[in-house]
Amino acid sequence: MVASTLSFLWEHKSFLLWGAWSTIQLTTISVALGTVIGTVVGICRVSRSKVLSLAAAGYADFIRGTPLLVQIFLVHYGLPAVVSSYVPGFYVAPFVSAVAALSINSGAYVSEIVRAGIQSIEKGQTEAGRSLGMTYGQTMRYIILPQAFRRIVPPLGNEFIAMLKDSSLVFAIGYNELMTRGKILMTKYFQFFETWVAVALVFLCMTLLVSRLVRFVERRMAINGES
């Protein structure tokens, strides 16, 4: 079993590694966009405007309260169906849908991380900024967010790892990443056990690598200033 799995892995290494590369690309782009969305939404969550904070909370609740696979189908099949009734033949490539669905999903989780990060900064920091005549925006930009972001890095790393795994769901709309390639190998060679252990091992390598990287960045930031 071990030997056959290893030889299977070796035999299909470049096929699987290309899949892993797609997964990493997809995850990186999605979490990067998700971080932008999540930062904006997270700031809205803590804003004094009731409308903004309610809208932001609604978005986060909707995304976190529904399955990712449903969201992927909604973006890939649901929305284009609406648009194509106005623009016949409208079609969205799986990569675009995948990035859109995963970014929107990631944004909701990141917004929670950002909100928690902002709220973890002591009230005295805001008061110090405001008492020096800074506006709310200046206090956010120069005082609160830079401190919040240091605290956000570790949970953001966890979000990346979670997304690395969850992105496998986009196989359902035919985007050619690691999971999809596992399915291709399975139907071609019928080595069910070897195929899925091999895919699992490749995922495991990626997540272990990323968690190492996150810890390294964390330590570097602890050295550069702040207690």
Binding site: G124, Q125, E127, A128, G129, S131, L132, P146, Q147, E226
Partner: peptide, 13 residues
């Protein structure tokens, strides 16, 4: 109007 707090509240970063 400048204010100095009991807990300093310097910007740690």
């Amino acid at each position: 109007v400048g204010i100095v707090f009991q807990s300093f509240n310097l910007f740690p970063h």
